[in-house]
């Protein structure tokens, strides 16, 4: 029997609530392990979607409050659109697992709290110049790369592993383009042969 297919069948049969409830219960046997992994996957996807939503809202703040340079705006809109695509797919995967998507930050105060909870330090009121915006955005992308790297370690479902790696690579591309706004030196733009999200912000 194809282990992956049987696992998918188990996941399809497990409600999200039941799967989450089994996390940490020490359930034994194949079904229990599969459900526990589905619950763990749901937690990881929820973390990823929460951060994606913070990033989307942060790009919105940068578009609203940052400098009105057309080329920068074009880039920020493209970045935000791609983050929304990530969020849509993550929400769909969570829905498949029977888990509700986390709430979107509703206003600037909620966004500031959510950013603090994610460890994002760049102040929302200090995105005045194009360089400010680029640094602000690199911090966002680095945080996402770090999170998706964790996801690649921790997720169980093969298709979710692929999804996490695909999004992580896209966030790496975002960070690269943003670092390119801050420097022409290739070793700054692509600072390491191993992207882990911990490169210094130029």
């Amino acid at each position: 029997m194809d282990a992956r297919l049987s696992r998918r069948a188990l996941l399809a049969g497990a409600s999200g609530g039941a799967a989450l409830a089994l996390v940490g219960t020490g359930a034994v046997g194949g079904v229990g392990i599969a459900r526990a992994q589905a619950g763990s996957d749901a937690e990881i996807l929820t973390r990823a979607l929460t951060l994606e939503q913070v990033v989307i809202a942060s790009y919105g703040a940068a578009l609203r409050d940052g400098p009105g340079e057309p080329r920068l705006h074009t880039l920020l809109r493209r970045l935000r659109r791609q983050e929304r695509e990530h969020a849509d797919v993550l929400a769909s995967e969570l829905d498949t697992l029977g888990v509700r998507a986390p709430a979107v930050p509703g206003d600037d105060a909620a966004l500031a709290r959510a950013r603090a909870a994610q460890g994002l330090r760049h102040p929302l009121d200090q995105i005045v110049t194009a360089s400010d915006v680029a640094r602000f955005a690199v911090e966002l992308e680095n945080a996402q790369i770090t999170l998706y790297l964790e996801a690649v370690r921790e997720l169980g479902a093969p298709r979710l592993l692929t999804l996490a790696a695909q999004i992580m690579a896209a966030e790496g591309q975002h960070a690269t383009v943003l670092r390119g706004l801050l420097s022409e030196l290739p070793e700054i733009v692509v600072p390491s042969p191993f992207e882990t999200g911990d490169a210094a912000i130029p």
Partner: peptide, 13 residues
């Protein structure tokens, strides 16, 4: 995955 992301960055450049 970290190598794949690096290759993606190369491709972007």
């Amino acid at each position: 995955a970290s190598i794949a992301a690096c290759e993606a960055e190369h491709a972007s450049c």
